[in-house]
Design a protein around this nucleic acid. Structure first.
Length: 829
RNA sequence: GCGAGAGUGGCGGAAUUGGCAGACGCGCCGGACUUAGGAUCCGGUCCCUCACGGGGUGGGGGUUCGAGUCCCCCCUUUCGCACCA
């Protein structure tokens, strides 16, 4: 950015603060929530003030979504557009630690800074509804929510192998581990066995899937949730360990291949391994488990590495055919999925096949392609469905029938049944960190885990200077005796508070409800306003939240629905994502050092230019690479608009324009009038469809035409009428500039209380259209004709045309294709 | 590896869904106005060719009167998933 070369095109630095003040003072964007007619709750994912300032990505969401909402407002919607701060959490705390500032203070400073940046957008944020999740009057109700879940058994503690981030020194939810790394700090995640709090989201797995049908969401986001939930319909089959009689249940989606089972594989951590391993195999098994434990998740789940494993020396009996088969352990079987054990069918599963090849285990063919030839069993597994063979009485059945029959049989003998399995795990919500919402539970030696009574909420996060993570797996709160020691609410005896805090994603499961009335004291949200204003009508934010925030919020909302707190199942029926703005080809991040802060651009070009440039860059849902070389062009365009209108249009408001009738207009006026109406149509359609770039392009064309009219000395009523519409058309895109021009033109009140221009349907069609003549598909001529011209009439004109005749003379006409109002293609030979 | 997008001038990107490829803007070139231009206004700008013409939407094939758009194969790229039994 070279500001010495930039010419200030219009006094945006005076205009923008002026109108921001006007909007604020006149409460233009304070929505009257008592009225819900034509309501439009336009929600943008609130900001996470982690220590970073607001960057271009935020601006891209907030500024452009605001333009969309302004457009809707001018169409008559009663728009509610709130903003707040998701201010608890690791990055905020890490930032505080790094700079030695208490997180409460650093967070407040960041919020103050970011609030200013947000105000600089000039969006329609209703600041009277601002919230912060760190505010006790907010998190009191996050605790309330926890207790409601706890009361229903949906918040519980269990010992489990969990993800541990050694750098953040806390556990993480599965959803926060990306490719084996911490979502926030990118450290490689390790595993620990810890007792942790979970929310039972798995109970809602099918509901979450079923709800997808009701959602107007990007299909990609829905499919990400589907994959994450990972519903799999199959069958549990219980094998029996021969010497101990232990049951070994396995989960399979291919019960029809059960006659092809030639061994069983347990995950190395499977609890049965120690009990069943033969004495001769103990050492090898121990060594293998040790090795597997040492591996990182990344190594462990790598699909490229060769299969490894060791036999346990134990055998299992197949409940269907009574056969005894060896039991192995191998790290390609995961403890966390299904039963942690699989029946291996090397003939029909590629992974089992590779394993069997390596360890010389038998491969048996029990499925053949329907009507086809058996594939070569030495090459690869045949994993598709087909017809069962070598399967006793079941031979000849299709895979589908076989699966059903085998499940039924297993059930009748008590050795299994049809079963649904999910990849989704319960949501781990406790964190061993200071900067979060304290979990409102008291642990009493006599009474166990007791909910803090509602009237004792909020449990305030204690002030302390020692908020560093201890590194021992305990929360910093555990070091504060005044906090820890409490009376048991049940027996009154001495007890201890839970010292862990909640995942920040809990805060954002319900914040959309709080916005309606942030000061409401009788519950988490004002129920009568929620009845009027929920669900959110349009939700906009990043797609990176597909399987975190967006899934968690749906789950919690379903819970609130089930318990009668809200009357809708889906909080965000309509969702859109803004594209990602990269810089030098990479996602903006501190570690890449490529974060672009909008502040300098706002200073040099103004907020309107910056907003319009982001809109003009390209497809909104695609995003793109940040490159400021074009921003001057937009700034110049706004300067052109300014110079077109500012000197030319005082008392525009007083001019009374007649209802124009297209055919009564002079040629130049008619042309302009048609263009104006086409522009209005296009802009309305494009803004609605978030095609902001082409909306702006067509407004540019209109401005270019208006300049041509000035040059031609045509400043007729149509010209001024067009100028008036131009100001309105631009309003959602350049709110400050348009408000200023609106007032220069003599209008009163805010332009955002005006109606968006609508078009005259009769003025969309021109007197003449250009039709094209092709010879053998090649363009040879274009002719102006009346719209709706018939084929015969057009051919007469076409064949008379010199440019056409020279191509067809002496040739024979084979075919003529006529497309009304478009073209005539003459095929000659 | 699997799945879903995307690939168009020097650049960002348009193209009413099978019908004038390159709208609009950046950049560049030229002109006007100017003491000046890094302001403004006007014009030009896909490639080859002096021209007539011809070629052209990642590559190859196909369907069609006609393909950026539809079909098949390949390449590149972005995103998502990735031993899920």
């Amino acid at each position: 950015m070279q500001d010495s070369r930039i010419h200030r095109q219009y006094p945006f630095d005076e205009i923008e603060p002026k109108w921001q003040r006007y909007w604020e003072e006149n409460k233009i964007y304070q929505t009257d929530l008592s009225k819900s007619g034509n309501k439009l709750y336009c929600l943008m994912m609130f900001i996470y003030p982690s220590g970073d300032k607001m960057h271009i990505g935020h601006w891209y969401n907030y500024g452009i979504t605001d333009s969309w909402a302004r457009f809707k407002r001018m169409l008559g919607y009663n728009v509610f557009e709130p903003m707040g701060y998701d201010a608890f959490g690791l990055p905020a705390e890490n930032y505080a630690l790094k700079f030695g500032v208490h997180p409460a203070i650093s967070t407040q400073n960041n919020i103050d800074y970011i609030r200013n940046q947000l105000r600089g957008i000039g969006a329609m944020f209703d600041w009277s509804k601002e919230i912060s999740t760190t505010d006790a009057k907010f998190y009191k109700w996050t605790q309330w929510l926890f207790l409601k879940l706890f009361a229903k058994g949906l918040a519980y503690r269990k010992m489990a192998p969990v993800n541990w981030c050694p750098s953040c020194q806390t556990v993480l939810a599965n959803e926060q581990v990306i490719d084996g790394r911490c979502e926030r700090c990118d450290s490689e995640v390790t595993h620990r066995d810890l007792t942790q709090w979970f929310f039972k989201i798995t109970e809602y797995a099918d509901r979450l899937l079923a709800g997808h049908k009701k959602l107007d969401w990007p299909s990609k986001t829905i499919s990400m949730q589907k994959n994450w939930i990972g519903r799999s319909d199959g069958c549990e089959i219980v094998f029996t360990e021969v010497s101990t009689g232990q049951d070994i249940p396995v989960f399979t989606t291919r019960a029809d291949t059960v006659f092809g089972v030639t061994y069983i594989v347990l995950a190395p951590e499977h609890p049965l391994v120690h009990r069943i391993t033969a004495s001769s195999n103990i050492k090898a098994v121990r060594d293998y488990i040790e090795k597997a434990r040492k591996q990182s998740e990344i190594e462990r789940t790598s699909t490229v590495k060769e299969k490894t494993g060791v036999p346990t020396g134990a055998y299992a009996q197949n409940p269907i055919n009574g056969e005894n088969i060896p039991i192995w352990i191998a790290d390609y079987v995961l403890l966390g999925y299904g039963t942690g054990a699989v029946m291996a069918v090397p003939g029909h599963d590629q992974r089992d096949f590779e394993f069997a090849k390596k360890f010389n285990l038998p491969v048996r063919e029990v499925i053949i392609p329907a009507g086809g030839k058996s594939p070569d069993m030495l090459e690869a597994a045949y994993a598709d469905e087909g017809i069962m063979v070598n399967s006793g009485d079941y031979s000849g059945l299709s895979s589908t029938d076989g699966q059903k029959k085998i499940a039924e049989h297993l059930k009748s003998i008590g050795r299994g049944e049809a079963r649904v399995n999910y990849r989704l795990r319960d949501w781990l919500i406790s964190r061993q960190r200071y900067w979060g919402v304290p979990i409102p539970i008291i642990r009493c030696h006599r009474c166990g885990e007791i909910a803090v009574p509602d009237d004792q909420l909020p449990i305030l996060l204690p002030e302390t200077t020692d908020f560093k993570p201890a590194g021992d797996g305990r929360s910093p709160l555990a070091k504060i005796p005044e906090f820890v020691n409490a009376d048991c609410p049940k027996c009154g005896g001495p007890a201890e508070r839970e010292t862990e805090t909640m995942d920040t994603f809990v805060d954002s499961t319900w914040y959309h409800l709080r916005f309606l009335d942030p000061d409401y004291e009788n519950g988490p949200f004002n129920p009568s306003l929620a009845k009027k204003w929920m669900p959110v009508d349009r939700y906009v934010g990043g797609s990176e939240h597909a399987v975190t925030h967006l899934m968690f919020a749906r789950f919690i909302n379903m819970f609130l629905y089930d318990n009668g707190y809200v009357n809708f199942e889906e909080p965000y029926p309509i969702l859109r994502h803004q594209g990602i703005i990269t810089h030098h080809g990479a996602k903006m991040s501190k570690s890449h050092g490529n974060v672009v802060i909008p502040d300098d651009y706002i200073k040099i070009y103004g907020s309107d230019t910056f907003r319009a440039y982001l809109m003009f860059m390209g497809d909104y849902e695609e995003g793109g690479d940040w490159d400021d070389t074009g921003i001057n062009g937009i700034h110049r365009f706004l300067g052109r608009v300014w110079r077109l209108i500012e000197p030319n249009c005082p008392d525009l408001a007083e001019k009374k324009f007649p209802l124009f009738i297209k055919d009564e207009l002079e040629d130049a006026d008619k042309e302009l009038y048609i263009q104006l109406n086409r522009t209005i149509k296009k802009v309305r359609e494009d803004l609605d469809a978030q095609k902001y770039n082409t909306a702006i392009a067509s407004i540019m064309e209109l401005v270019n035409s208006l300049y041509k009219n000035i040059e031609a000395g045509n400043q007729s009523p149509i010209f001024y009428h067009s100028i008036g519409d131009l100001i309105l058309l631009l309003a959602p895109i350049t709110p400050h500039l348009s408000e200023e021009l609106y007032h220069i033109a003599g209008f009163e009140g805010s332009i955002f209380d005006a109606q968006y221009p609508d078009y005259d349907k009769d003025a969309i069609v021109g007197d003449n259209i250009t039709m094209v003549i092709q010879i053998n598909g090649k363009l040879r001529a274009s002719i102006e004709v009346k719209p709706g011209i018939g084929q015969d009439e057009f051919e007469k004109i076409a064949f008379d045309y010199e440019g056409v005749r020279k191509y067809i003379s002496g040739k024979s006409i084979i075919k003529k294709i006529f497309i009304k109002d478009r073209l005539l293609n003459i095929v000659v030979r």
